Computed example of a mutant assay.
Amino acid sequence: MNAVLAYAEHLSRDRRRSPHTVRAYVSTAERLVEHLGAARVPTSAELRAYLAERRVDGIGNASAARELSAIRNFLTFVGGEGAAPKLKGPRVKKGVPRPISPDEVVALAEDVAEQSVEAWISARDWAVLMLLYGAGLRIGEAVGLTGAVLPLGAVLTVTGKRDKTRMVPLIAPVRDAVEAYATLSPWPISKDEPLFRGARGGPLKPEIIRRAVQGARGRLGLASRTTPHALRHSFATHLLGRGADLRSLQALLGHASLSSTQIYTSVDAAHLLDVYRNAHPHG
């Protein structure tokens, strides 16, 4: 079996990665092997040349950082721990607060999930981050879920600030992520116990996810604004940009006041203006 096929099997069988992650990482491995001519550990110069070619293909900073993360993972599989050349990833320019792009969200979540050798912890971290971005939950709301939410349906009942409950629609990727974690978790899941557990079986603490995100954004070169709470902001801003009205958004986020939701109109306008200035010849 060649190295790429063995790597794909390793990701699926041993690391229990999602089909999306397997496809993305295997595609990177195939491109790298095609560039090198063989499945071997490249020199730093060869790796820079490969990444330069990918830049010519048109990939941006977040995609380049994600590609580098996938390369490190593949080279570690091929050559063992420490085999991958040390190479800094691209940095994203810092500026006014803006929503995190979907590409950056996926890169971030995949990098966080890749850090654990325990498949169930990887699935846990992926599921929590998907709840923040895909359902707009606060970090405390996500880690506060109990086994009572299972089996998942089309909507999730969330208890937010001041013990207010709200109904949040669940898209398929979010449901799949939570269900994959529940299947892999070594801890029994009961209705009155935490859904998400720490490594020793206790309730998962928000700080664990915050530290994981902090480490990932450093490895990927993402801006300091990339925090767990920023994923919730991005959920709101992207929905608003796709036509959601403020009242609906208020209900989804669990804001007591519409004024708390209105901040996203200015954030979205700032983002659109930034896009206009970069794209329009007279912007």
Rank of each mutant, 00 (worst) to 15 (best):
L51V: 08
E67D: 03
V112E: 02
V178R: 04
A52T: 08
L87N: 07
D14L: 11
Q214D: 08
P203Q: 13
H229I: 02
I209L: 08
R91F: 00
H280S: 09
A142H: 08
G82D: 02
A212F: 09
L108D: 10
G136D: 06
G160M: 14
V275D: 02
V117H: 11
S224D: 12
I121M: 14
T226D: 05
R16I: 05
Q115R: 13
S257A: 12
V143R: 01
G58E: 06
M1D: 07
R166V: 04
V149Y: 05
L108P: 03
F235L: 08
D125V: 05
A244K: 04
L195I: 07
H20P: 00
A119Q: 03
K93W: 07
A64I: 02
E110P: 00
R138P: 02
T227G: 13
T265L: 15
A107G: 08
Q250L: 01
K94G: 13
K205R: 14
D192W: 01
A113E: 08
P99R: 03
G134K: 04
G134M: 00
L258K: 10
Y276K: 04
E110Y: 05
G144A: 13
D111S: 04
Y276G: 01
R17C: 09
R17K: 07
L36G: 11
L220I: 06
L75Q: 02
D111H: 08
R138I: 01
W120S: 11
H10W: 15
D245I: 01
S44A: 13
I208S: 04
G134T: 04
V26G: 10
R55T: 12
V22S: 02
A62T: 05
A279K: 05
L246D: 04
G37C: 12
E141W: 06
T146S: 15
E118Q: 12
V106Q: 11
P186S: 11
R17V: 03
R15I: 15
A236K: 10
G37F: 11
K88A: 14
R48Y: 03
H238T: 14
L253D: 00
I189C: 04
A154N: 05
K86P: 05
R166G: 10
G37P: 09
E141H: 06
